[in-house]
Design a binder for these strands. Structure first.
Lengths: 116, 116
DNA sequence: TTTAATCGGTTCGGCTCCGAAACAAACAGG
DNA sequence: CCTGTTTGTTTCGGAGCCGAACCGATTAAA
């Protein structure tokens, strides 16, 4: 069964989750950083800087800087591709996986609490 | 009937909507700005700068600047409170309402397209 | 009336981010 | 080799945001 979510409910859900994010402001991720993080943890194949830049429709430095800051937060790691040493493969971390998992739980919880 | 959304589905939904936002990047709103906008359009009572600052847990200049930029985008307007002229009441605009409405439709559409 | 409190806005130095361009390293083909 | 391409990073000037502190206007209290 597909997920039934009316536009008004969607907005309430979006606001509730955003408000909790802004208020707690743990690792404060921008929309771009959050998109990169979710892409990394939901699309399981290997990811490169170039691939992420194309997917998001941004330039390469944006990805490099986002990976820098998320790396400082411990959410991702980088490794040279041994097969083609020009490439950098972005790798997941335990901390990053936990962060994404908490986000999923948070959204699901807010959805369950929505008025009918 | 409450909204049923598993954590894995929630993450897919979040990623899909964020990706579309980043790629189109129309009015590019930060998490704080988006939260303010949704608060204004979902909580129908009158809003002041101070009230919004408390709700989001941020300082007043943050709200002032967010309202400045959203005002330039045509998403909100400000008006002095005639009853207490120290207050500034934030007002909705047609353009802002349309923006919020599009967001709701977008999230609902992505939710309906989610795999089971 | 004078003093204090409240409200939104502005100033300030510091920090982050932006994209275009230049760059170094690594491959590919002749 | 040597030339050209690809990949990720760095540099650069410019723009925007940050919170603490301060400011001017307004209201409330003494």
């Amino acid at each position: 069964m597909a997920v039934q979510l009316r536009p008004a409910q969607a907005l309430r859900l979006w606001e509730a989750v955003l408000l909790e994010m802004v208020r707690t402001a743990e690792p404060d991720l921008s929309a771009r950083q959050m998109t990169i993080l979710l892409t990394l943890y939901l699309e399981t194949h290997a990811h490169t800087v170039r691939g992420l830049a194309e997917r998001l429709g941004v330039t390469k430095p944006v990805i490099t800087r986002a990976l820098d800051s998320m790396g400082r937060m411990g959410l991702v790691t980088r490794k040279r591709d041994p097969a083609d040493r020009r490439n950098v493969l972005i790798q997941r971390t335990v901390e990053g996986a936990l962060f994404v998992e908490r986000l999923g739980d948070r959204v699901a919880k807010k959805a369950a609490e929505l008025p009918h």
